Measured scan of single mutants.
Amino acid sequence: MGSVRTNRYSIVSSEEDGMKLATMAVANGFGNGKSKVHTRQQCRSRFVKKDGHCNVQFINVGEKGQRYLADIFTTCVDIRWRWMLVIFCLAFVLSWLFFGCVFWLIALLHGDLDTDYKDDDDKSKVSKACVSEVNSFTAAFLFSIETQTTIGYGFRCVTDECPIAVFMVVFQSIVGCIIDAFIIGAVMAKMAKPKKRNETLVFSHNAVIAMRDGKLCLMWRVGNLRKSHLVEAHVRAQLLKSRITSEGEYIPLDQIDINVGFDSGIDRIFLVSPITIVHEIDEDSPLYDLSKQDIDNADFEIVVILEGMVEATAMTTQCRSSYLANEILWGHRYEPVLFEEKHYYKVDYSRFHKTYEVPNTPLCSARDLAEKKYILSNANSFCYENEVALTSKEEEEDSENGVPESTSTDSPPGIDLHNQASVPLEPRPLRRESEIGSRR
């Protein structure tokens, strides 16, 4: 089982795998120059863009038009607004034209077009017409509009002379109601789609790998820009990579689940303020055997998904993003964004995407760390350097704002901070800030 798991979770494809794949392509008759073999020097295209759209195009789909027309309502909801407006206008105009032609044909076959009612006051002739005051196609078209929109100006009306005319008036009224219901329903469904809710759900630009509770963890940050909550919010993550099976089958995008606390339930989050999602790199993680150097040379993509129900409509929305291997910062942490004021908490989104480097973060893999092949620094050293990194950030910001350097908390000259780390230190809580992250 261990060997199978290692093969499945191998992220960085070796040169031997690339040569094996190329040999397979030639042997199977696919070596026509169009096949692409992804190596370390040639990274694959992003499968999920940063804005959440999937970078996929469908080609050679059989009976595409028929399949889309069979699900016309979903098609109308998914198309762009400009095409929705075109369909909206065409549906009414074509129905008016169709029934206008029908009423014109009825008048033509009944002989109503030969009668001039402007110079004739004989009401008996008017009563013999199928539709009064309809003696041309324009008049028939206007009567069709008046019937379907129930305008009723009063000059044109159907008589009991022709039952077919009466039937067409009733039929057009029913068709008009159906068109109204369909168009209004599609427009309302399109307006109520929770897709735009994703514009106020954000992911951090970069993911980070750092120590948390004595273990290497992959972390990324999510935030909600609205005050309205995302009900039943939960997160998922998958690692996408290519691999070759033991039988020699090439899988271009193998999807591997990344555990973010599904078993323990901590994948469900209360997204009021930005939260750091934590994936513990343990023996079940696809990143277990990867060191910093392996991450730098790897070719994979981590897709992160945030799902929840919109509070206003109770409709489920899904926000997506992805991180390539070069977008994962090893040995970094996110800057705090949640600050405790006197009577409330304040979230500073200008710090949302910012990170700071944490010294002495192990550069080895989580496996080597678990097997004690890498000796961690003293816990006080880690905490102290973590505090120094934050303090230096604040000093830089104070210097930019014009604060005198004498007010900063610099260490005395001639003292090495790293050498001082081995000395037991008193706890130094942050002056006014605390970061709330997901705790395992």
Rank of each mutant, 00 (worst) to 15 (best):
L290A: 08
V131A: 01
T313E: 12
Y345C: 06
E133C: 05
K36T: 14
L230E: 04
H110K: 01
Y384R: 06
E405G: 12
N28W: 02
A91H: 09
P252K: 15
L239Q: 02
V131W: 02
G29V: 06
N224F: 05
N326P: 05
S10G: 11
T409F: 09
N326A: 11
S422I: 10
F382N: 03
G2H: 06
I302R: 01
G308D: 04
A186L: 04
V304Y: 05
P336C: 10
S14H: 06
M315S: 08
K196E: 08
W330R: 00
S246V: 10
L201Q: 07
Q293C: 07
Q42N: 10
I145D: 01
G176E: 03
F30C: 15
Q66W: 15
D263G: 08
C157M: 13
D120G: 01
Q148H: 02
A298G: 08
D348A: 00
I375C: 14
Q41R: 07
E249F: 06
D180C: 12
C43I: 13
Y384P: 07
I256N: 05
Q293M: 12
E307S: 12
R351V: 14
E387L: 02
C162I: 01
R5S: 12
V4N: 11
A298T: 09
R226L: 14
A139T: 12
K215W: 03
F155V: 09
R8M: 06
G2D: 07
V26F: 03
S285A: 00
E405D: 11
G402N: 12
M168E: 00
F167C: 14
M309H: 13
Y250R: 14
D180Y: 06
V235M: 05
C383K: 09
V347F: 11
F47R: 13
S35A: 12
D17I: 05
K227H: 07
A139L: 02
I275F: 11
A207Q: 01
K346C: 05
E247P: 12
D289R: 04
K241H: 09
C43H: 09
D122G: 00
S377G: 12
I183Q: 10
L97E: 02
N28P: 14
S408N: 05
S136N: 09
A139H: 05
L287N: 01
I79G: 06
G154L: 02
L239N: 01
W330I: 01
K128E: 04
F339M: 15
D296K: 04
F262H: 05
V235G: 03
R212N: 14
P194N: 05
R67L: 05
S10A: 05
V235I: 07
S95N: 07
C157D: 03
I251T: 14
Y117G: 00
R156F: 02
T407F: 05
G152R: 03
K393H: 14
N380P: 09
P427V: 08
G100L: 01
I302Q: 03
K196R: 08
E311G: 04
Q66G: 07
F382D: 03
L287S: 01
L390K: 11
F339E: 15
D114Y: 10
V170C: 04
C130Q: 03
V61A: 08
V4M: 04
K292L: 02
Y250G: 15
S35C: 07
E341F: 10
C157I: 09
L425C: 13
K393R: 14
Y349G: 09
N378Y: 04
H38G: 14
I151Q: 05
K20A: 12
V272T: 09
G65R: 13
Q238H: 09
I295T: 06
E405S: 13
N198F: 10
L105P: 00
I415V: 14
T75Q: 08
A189R: 08
L338Y: 13
T75I: 06
V61F: 07
S144F: 01
A140F: 03
Q293Y: 05
D119E: 01
P163M: 11
A129P: 05
S422M: 10
N60A: 10
I436M: 06
G185I: 10
S291G: 09
F182E: 03
K342C: 05
E397T: 11
L201Y: 05
E405P: 07
L90G: 05
L85A: 06
H110C: 00
Y349M: 06
T317C: 14
V56N: 08
S411I: 07
Q238M: 11
L90P: 01
I256Q: 11
A325Y: 02
S406V: 10
I72W: 06
T391I: 05
I277V: 08
K227I: 10
S291K: 09
P336G: 11
N7M: 06
P413G: 11
D416I: 11
V222I: 09
D122N: 03
A379R: 11
V86I: 11
E199W: 08
D282P: 00
A129Y: 04
V304D: 00
M188F: 07
I209L: 05
T39R: 08
D282V: 10
K346T: 04
E340F: 11
A192D: 05
L225H: 11
P163A: 14
L21Y: 05
E335H: 05
F155P: 14
V4E: 11
F47K: 06
E247I: 04
T115E: 12
K196M: 14
L108R: 13
F203A: 03
E146Q: 06
C383S: 14
V278H: 04
S242N: 13
A366T: 01
K292Y: 14
R8N: 10
